[in-house]
Nucleic acid binder design. Structure first.
Length: 279
DNA sequence: CGTTGAACCTGTTTGC
DNA sequence: TGCAAACAGGTTCAAC
């Protein structure tokens, strides 16, 4: 669920509460989504939260550890499909599947809830964190049109697969990929290398505009996504392709179709987004 | 290289 | 109504 706009929304929400707070205690439930739960239990308690940032779909809490493990430490978190990070008062009722409680020094808690446990959590030194964050590709909001073109035309994969590949662009997911392709009128199965210059320019613009608009509306809430304050997003009402199989295309009225591309459900307008004989 | 399918796990929706 | 299948924002790995 959480793609770039959702993670960005969560990060902005966390920034309202976390920087300057100390994590006084940690409580763990199920930990099979953690690389090394023992390390988290040992190194996180007592640390000071310096900053919160996003890298693709990863959230990064910059910590200053005290005691023995003194020094800069990164808490790296991925929300997977159903992960939620919220800051609540310590006496707030606990939702099922809440697996981590970070008790703060202001009687509040940062809670991680993830029913499917596809999320990920680990602590690392800045150097080790680089091993996870380093391989990620260009930020879709920062990438220039020139770099965008180069990244897309230098590979022989379908445009849908390229946009979803986190080592090419960090942060794009199934919803915003389909929405961007719909706006740019490009069929998801087209080969990136075969896109015409005009199409690439339109796609670059569409992607950036859609991500910005989605961030403005707090992301898309399909079933369980919420921001750090527990509020759902509103971008789902603006979806033009995603999850609209059989419904009318907002542009031409044709029925939106669904097909599997790059292993994922892909929604597109068969009339606006034509599949050429040679993809 | 790139694609496909399965696996990871739980909950919800859909179909017979 | 009830049960089983299909499906879900993501990533990773094996096999071709």
């Amino acid at each position: 669920m959480p793609e770039l706009p959702e993670v960005e929304t969560v990060v902005r929400g966390l920034r309202l509460h976390l920087p300057g707070r100390r994590i006084v205690e940690l409580r763990l439930g199920k930990t099979d989504f953690m690389d090394d739960p023992v390390a988290i239990g040992e190194r996180v308690p007592g640390s000071l939260i310096r900053a919160v940032r996003r890298h693709g779909k990863f959230l990064v809490l910059e910590l200053e550890a005290d005691g023995a493990a003194r020094g800069e430490l990164l808490l790296v978190i991925h929300l997977g499909m159903t992960g939620q990070l919220t800051v609540v008062a310590a006496d707030t009722e606990v939702k099922p599947h809440t697996h981590v409680f970070f008790m703060l020094d202001d009687r509040r808690e940062l809670r991680f809830c993830d029913p499917r446990r596809f999320g990920r959590m680990l602590v690392a030194t800045p150097a080790d964190g680089e091993k996870i964050l380093g391989p990620l590709g260009a930020d879709p909001l920062e990438v220039s049109e020139t770099d965008f073109r180069r990244l897309i035309t230098s590979r022989r994969a379908r445009i849908k697969a390229l946009l979803l590949d986190q080592t090419v662009f960090r942060g794009m997911g199934n919803i915003y990929t389909d929405e961007s392709l719909w706006r740019a009128k490009i069929h998801p199965a087209r080969l990136g290398a075969n896109l015409k210059p005009g199409e690439i320019k339109k796609l670059h613009r569409a992607m950036r505009a859609i991500l910005k608009e989605a961030i403005r509306l707090g992301g898309s809430s399909i079933s369980d996504y919420v921001g750090a304050n527990g509020e759902p997003g509103e971008f789902q009402i603006r979806h033009r392709a995603y999850d609209r199989e059989g419904k009318k295309c907002f542009r031409c009225g044709a029925k939106i179709r669904r097909m599997i591309v790059a292993g994922r459900s892909s929604y597109f307008c068969p009339k606006c987004q034509r599949a050429p004989r040679v993809l």
